[in-house]
Nucleic acid binder design. Structure first.
Lengths: 208, 208
DNA sequence: GTGGCGATGTATCGCTCCGATACATCGGCA
DNA sequence: TGCCGATGTATCGGAGCGATACATCGCCAC
């Protein structure tokens, strides 16, 4: 998942680790806590070994005349390669079981602007199915096993059930919007060729 | 976290691995997917090595007195020890940063019936703080960095923000109930000294 | 009766990711 | 001048997951 997110961000512009983490946090803040460096750096190394990204030290220009005695460690700027872009396209389009899990879904959704509509629909519907299953599981527990559980546990289940129901409704809306050709926050359908979907975004919405 | 959950469940009755997983799924279904055996068995081994639980093979004789749905199979039944109960009490009362994380909070909450009121309040307030911080982070992104993000990413943030606001409200209610001495789903206050939380539970609510 | 099949049951392996920790540089300001 | 918080790179141990393997049980179709 991290691999996908990193490739997606580097596609927008080259970055060094610290920056990458901040952008990652901003983009994925809704679905997970800040990424750990213990995940980030090893993943960057792996991506580099696979040839999806390259390293371009920023020291040369920055420090050129005064790097002397102290072991000045330059920032390492990572840049996506052509292979990396291919890899991203492959990852973003392929859907497996974990695509519908909380984190997996969130990451895929965060890059929907770079995903084609058919894939978007597939993912939204897969996620809906997943959340519906979870919802049914919670309903079962609440109706069939309620007497075995204490009041706090039941309250937890109720809260979880509520969250599931809300998410399903949210997904239904998104699916309906996709089918009718609207962007997530547009007010209505578009049948003309005016400024495409993005609402207030300055990023290109569909195939970049 | 798994350690705490297993000790908590085994406190109610001895169980074998498969059963434990099912109970775990029922109890924690609202906060996490089914536990993996790749986590469960190694943890059981660790708990056993530490002396918190003991292994009691359920063969012939055992099965006859407790004949649920199973038969005489080479199952391994785990049972909590006195040390294990102490360990559980220690874990359930101690709060660290991860106590307020999604999973950590959920597990602690699921055993609130075995937690004293002061600790319950501490945890609920810590969690509220955590979720509020998350909420502020999302608001910041939505107000300050909105133009940098595409419509889908923004929609994700909005949905996350909504979930945060809801959870804070939920926590406020729970905190108010705790302060006024009500169980999570009771209809009114209690000013006598009858058993604190249990609602309709048949389980003993406080120190067993 | 017997063959298959889904539920029950125990177990391991490789992997991803996290949290803690260490260390170094930078700009500002007291 | 000295301190501090933000920036920045990096590793280590461990928790938990998903895939996989394998064995037994109860039951129903053939």
């Amino acid at each position: 998942m991290l691999e996908l997110a990193i490739l997606g961000l580097l596609q927008e512009s080259p970055m060094h680790g610290y920056e990458l983490r901040k952008e990652l946090t901003a983009k994925l803040g809704a679905i997970r806590a800040a990424i750990s460096y213990g995940s980030l750096y090893p993943t960057l190394r792996r991506l580099q070994a696979s040839g999806w990204i390259t390293e371009a030290s920023a020291t040369a220009a920055d420090v050129e005349e005064a790097p002397p005695l102290t072991s000045r460690r330059g920032r390492v700027v990572y840049k996506i390669t052509a292979d990396g872009k291919e890899r991203f396209a492959e990852l973003i389009a392929q859907t497996g079981p974990e695509t519908y899990e909380d984190t997996g879904f969130g990451v895929h959704f965060a890059f929907f602007a770079r995903t084609d509509r058919a894939t978007r629909l597939r993912i939204l519907e897969g996620r809906r199915r997943k959340v519906e299953e979870r919802r049914e599981g919670l309903r079962d527990v609440l109706s069939r096993a309620a007497e075995r559980l204490d009041a706090y546990t039941l309250e937890l289940q109720r809260h979880g059930l509520d969250a599931c129901e809300r998410e399903v409704r949210w997904l239904e809306e998104l699916i309906a919007n996709e089918r009718s050709g609207r962007a997530p926050d547009d007010g209505g359908p578009r049948q003309d060729n005016s400024p495409p979907p993005p609402g207030q975004s300055r990023k290109e919405p569909e195939r970049p």
